[in-house]
Design a protein around this nucleic acid. Sequence first.
RNA 1: GCGCCCGUAGCUCAGCCUGGAUAGAGCAACGGACUUCUAAUCCGUAGGUCGCAGGUUCGAAUCCUGCCGGGCGCGCCA
Length: 553
Amino acid sequence: MRKPIEIKKYSMMNIFKTNRTIVDWLAGRAAELYDVDVVPDVFEPESLDFGDWTTNLPFQLARVARKSPADIATEIVDAELPKNISSAEVAGAGYINFRISKDALAGMVLSIISEPDRWGFSSPEKNVKIQVEFVSANPTGPMNIVSARAAAVGSTIANALRTAGYDVSTEFYLNDAGNQIRLLGESFLARIEQLRGKSAEIPEGGYFGEYLLDYAREYLSSGASENPQEWILKKITSEQKSVLKKFNTEFDVWFSEREFRSSGKVEEVLSRLRDGEHTYIKDGAEWFAASKIADDVEDFVLVKSDGEWAYGLVDIAYHINKFEERGFDIVYTILGPDHHGHRARLETAMKALGHPDKLKVLILQQVNLIENGEKIKMSKRAGKIITMTELIDDVGVDAARYFFLARKMEAHLDFDLDLARNTSDENPVYYIQYAYARIRSIIEFAQNKGFDVDEIVQADLSLLQHPEEHFLIRKIYKYPYTIEKTARNLQPHIIPFYLYDLAKLFHDFYTKHRVVDENEKGLSVARLALIDAVAITIKNGLKICGISAPDKM
RNA sequence: GCGCCCGUAGCUCAGCCUGGAUAGAGCAACGGACUUCUAAUCCGUAGGUCGCAGGUUCGAAUCCUGCCGGGCGCGCCA
């Protein structure tokens, strides 16, 4: 166990505060020197060689100040620097590169190792309620690999948002009503009849997959007395739950469409749309006049001519429920690529009903499985689909999640099965995990040599003088910023790339410098503190991704 | 036809939202490094008309327009 300790020499440094300090300082200098009011852009330089933060403000001031960016940069820098900043250096044609002081970075490292579970978590919390809905696969059969991708991406976004201080609820919308469920029930009944030796046909548009036959056998042999249609629905749903859980994806709420349909909300929403004169009758059906609200959205049916609610209507009401009954400030709904037409419809409807700009529908692109360099062709009809369960059993949870995450979600993903299966150096997920395992191993070695935790947590980090050590510290410093960026941009792929870079810096450091050296106790302790902070960062980052951090490999 | 996404090194991709420093990784190729804490590692070499053409700008892989190529979607299905 780690003992909480009092850090006397240094105070906790807040990365966002530091960035903010630089912004304010620059704005002040610009006002003072050139009498202009600007909000300077302070961002990460492309390389750590250029410092910790950089600004291109001099370029922006060039016209107003009628001077070259380089001269402006020189003038700006000629003043007392803000807190925690040790240098501001003019570089290139007019950049200013800032470096965080070593004292401040040392304080950060010590605070990480004394409170590892808090590292990366934003405080204070933001007072915003966010819902993330994802997967929401129909409970009509085994989940496919797009659901697996959605699970990895959705859960990571939710984890990142939570870490960044938002109040997050994850939700799976259970489509347990409607036409498809009826067809599922009928298909299942037909399979049962077939097993009983009677002739029964699976209905048109029904589910022909072998799995229903297997379930039918299970149903009959279990002697269940429950209505088969209810039984199969529960069966498939519970299978989905358990696969998702195995995939490190858990939902706070499983929201039943069937229950929702009887809540009265659909009727209410429909009548509000009518009152707002957003609907009209055509061909015996009732339509939503979406094109009147947004130019590029076509009208669509709310109530079918047979009097049944269309899917679109129920989904609109469902999303209204999220805002009105449950008070979410922001809702992210992740949908598959075949739903992109639905996105504009939903967002238009939210606008019509008084909730503009609160719903963001994210479209997750498709997945192609690649084996032996070729695309695996999948066909539902031929029963040749690869299920989420098979994928997990094949490549493992960690590798699968890594490959799903290490790609922008709006891009198509070619999932290389051979590479994901590969447990060698070609597989980047092991590269990151290996860095962690190496560190655990070194720390264990050190403890066996008599170093203890109390010493490490009071290390004198000024003993760290090599560039490899400083690159590591400064990369760690960027971790909370990386999480914040992920949450703000909803781009989970940022985290795996960051962790890979961090692991690379560690491996480089490891090769050049020995950590445990009994003749250099102080230095060893400082390095142990450093690598412990690296390990904590990797572990916390992997946890957000739902990927494990094994102590040994 | 309309809409969404993609096009950056031989391959797989970052970088684009928010324009600026020599366009970055990994894999594959070639050459090196283990008596010392895990070689699932490290170092080096080589590899690019950023799909094409215009435009905006002091400055474009990044923003705008038009093309070309690839994927997907356009139901009173959900």
